[in-house]
Nucleic acid binder design. Structure first.
Lengths: 107, 107
DNA sequence: CAAAAAGTATCGCTACTCCGAACAAATATG
DNA sequence: CATATTTGTTCGGAGTAGCGATACTTTTTG
């Protein structure tokens, strides 16, 4: 009955020790609405709400929005790659990005 | 008349050379709605729409949502790229990494 | 235990999302 | 030029986000 979004919000909320009411007031929402996000499907919140909730819960909006259950495992190789990538000049970065777009086409 | 969100979307759309129609179809929206997001005051899109639009434009949803200019496009682009990279299969990631090594030689 | 707090659930309402389709402006093509 | 095509703009309306009110159940706390 719960959606990925709902579970993420509840887990994060619990982890921070917030009640529905508390999270609601921190994110300019109502208790009833937070509850609906956690329990009712399908939730279709506004970007603004998700942005505020994400900020309060200390995660990115992208994480909440992503419908997959993205188990994020820290990979040292990936992180090293990203650090290196970030130091490249803009045009090189652009090239790499396009490379990924192309390679990403075939599923 | 234009909001921060609207300007961001338009700038990114133009930079990619997309028409309203093209961006609309890539992000499962309508032409008229994309236009409203870019031009009308104040837009309050759903998280889902923003997520799709952000993905198509190669930035994070957080960048589009953030009303202040705290997040730089370049950072948002890099983060969106990294997120995409991490979801690739190992052999593709390997290819990208080697690509970066090659391009990093010069300069 | 009793009271307070937290969670569950529904309803009515207003304002807004998002679309299709028609219209206008711009640009391509002959 | 004319006009075909592509792009951008506008509008009406169906459906829904998100709130406050209310009421009930479960959990916490003293």
């Amino acid at each position: 009955m719960a959606t990925p979004l709902g579970e993420k919000i509840r887990d994060l909320r619990k982890a921070k020790g917030y009640t529905l009411d508390r999270l609601a007031e921190l994110s300019d929402s109502s208790k009833s609405y937070i509850w609906e996000l956690e329990n009712k499907n399908p939730p279709r919140p506004s970007a603004e709400k998700i942005g505020k909730i994400a900020a309060v819960l200390g995660v990115t909006a992208d994480y909440l929005i992503d419908p997959t259950d993205a188990i994020k495992v820290e990979d040292a190789t990936d992180n090293a790659f990203f650090r290196k990538y970030r130091e490249m000049d803009p045009t090189t970065k652009e090239k790499i990005r396009r490379m990924l777009d192309v390679l990403g086409d075939d599923e």
